[in-house]
Computed example of a mutant assay.
Amino acid sequence: MQSIGSVRGEARKRRSPDALLKRGIAVPRRSSRGLPMLAGARNLIARSPRSVRLGKLGRDRVRGKWLLVCVLFLASALLYGAWIGGQTGRLVDTLGGGIEKLAVAAGFGVKRVTVDGQLHTTDAEITAALHAGPDTMMLGYDTDAAKARLEAVPWIKHAQVMRLLPSTLQVVIEERVPYAIWQSHGQTYVVDAEGVTLAPALREAYPELPLVVGDGAPKAAPALYQALMPYGDLKQKMIAAIRVGDRRWTLKLASGLEVMLPDDNVDEALASLTKLDAEKALLKRNIASVDLRLLDRVTVRLRDDPDGSPPTAEAAQETPTSSTKTPGKGKT
């Protein structure tokens, strides 16, 4: 008697794909129980990444690399030694000097200087202020410092310095204008309207300029001559304006007459003097001085000459000095 299990097992064997294939029966392909496969899908092949092997450096490249390392090491050792020995500044100066010499050798040295606006300033003063020569490198030249040095020259009021590569310095200056001749302690100087002393000068070299005498006269002179502008006749008769105590003025005329002005209210004093001269010909009389320091009265001092004659031309035009004393009060 055959068991059921065996019959079923035998049936399964008959139905197995191999048995069916042997019998020439097509066997349907079973689908996988996993994820569905797309029709026509390509199989993906996972490949491990390839390793790239770098080629070895050539001998020349290795040698250049080590040469660079050696140079950097020597340079760092040199700088460290200079720093330890306190010679860093000297080393920097040496390197800078070498670079400067190379630039000058290449044609970037100062070979030409042009100056515009020069009238009274000497070439020696300009050259000394520029501090430039054939060995001076144009690229490193400090034009601001040169400008400051030029403006320290008494005659120069403003200056401008420009570099015109490769080898020209262009200098433009504005000089001060002479305003008066200043006499102090027996010496004479030319000064400008700001009271700046420009240079020693002879009176004869500037005959058209007014003569001022005494301490503080250069700075106070512009205000005085501004007040004298309406009084052309009086200005023509003047040979000097003497500053007294750096407070007031005494005008010395060509006739030898001295006019003492007050500390202030100079305009009123000059107007009073002009009125008296128009009414009584005061400036043509044989008097030594006119005192206008008090506005409410005019004091006149007569000459001490026994014959009452006016002074000679030589005595009248004698140049006063800063030690000239103001005469005292005389007869009213």
Results as ranks from 00 to 15, higher is better:
Gly55Asp: 11
Trp155Gly: 01
Leu292Gly: 07
Thr312Gly: 14
Arg163Pro: 03
Asp123Tyr: 01
Ser51Leu: 15
Arg301Gly: 02
Ala221Leu: 07
Thr136Met: 10
Pro154Asn: 10
Glu204Trp: 11
Lys331Tyr: 08
Pro311Gln: 09
Ala221Cys: 09
Gly308Phe: 00
Gln226Ile: 04
Gly34Lys: 05
Gly308Asn: 03
Ile25Asn: 07
Asp142Leu: 09
Ser184Asp: 13
Glu174Leu: 12
Arg30Cys: 06
Pro230Phe: 05
Phe73Glu: 00
Ala148Pro: 06
Ala152Pro: 06
Leu261Val: 06
Gln317Phe: 06
Val62Thr: 15
Val92Cys: 01
Lys237Asn: 05
Gly109Lys: 07
Ser167Met: 02
Trp83Ser: 12
Leu72Val: 08
Lys284Phe: 00
Gln226Ala: 15
Arg47Trp: 01
Ile287Tyr: 03
Ala313His: 02
Arg285Leu: 09
Glu175Ala: 05
Gly81Asp: 09
Val153Asp: 08
Thr143Cys: 12
Arg50His: 13
Val69Phe: 11
Leu209Glu: 06
Gly245Glu: 14
Glu174Trp: 12
Pro210Lys: 03
Leu224Thr: 02
Arg176Asp: 01
Asp116Phe: 04
Ile45Leu: 11
Ala315Lys: 03
Leu283Val: 08
Ser184Pro: 00
Tyr225Gln: 03
Thr321Met: 07
Ala281His: 12
Arg42Asn: 08
Trp66Val: 10
Leu261His: 01
Lys252His: 06
Ala269Glu: 05
Leu211Ala: 08
Glu151Ile: 12
Gly24Asp: 06
Ile25Trp: 02
Met1Trp: 10
Lys147Thr: 13
Arg61Phe: 00
Glu174Lys: 05
Leu150Cys: 10
Lys235Asp: 09
Arg15Gln: 08
Ile287Lys: 01
Asp192His: 09
Gln183Lys: 04
Arg176Leu: 07
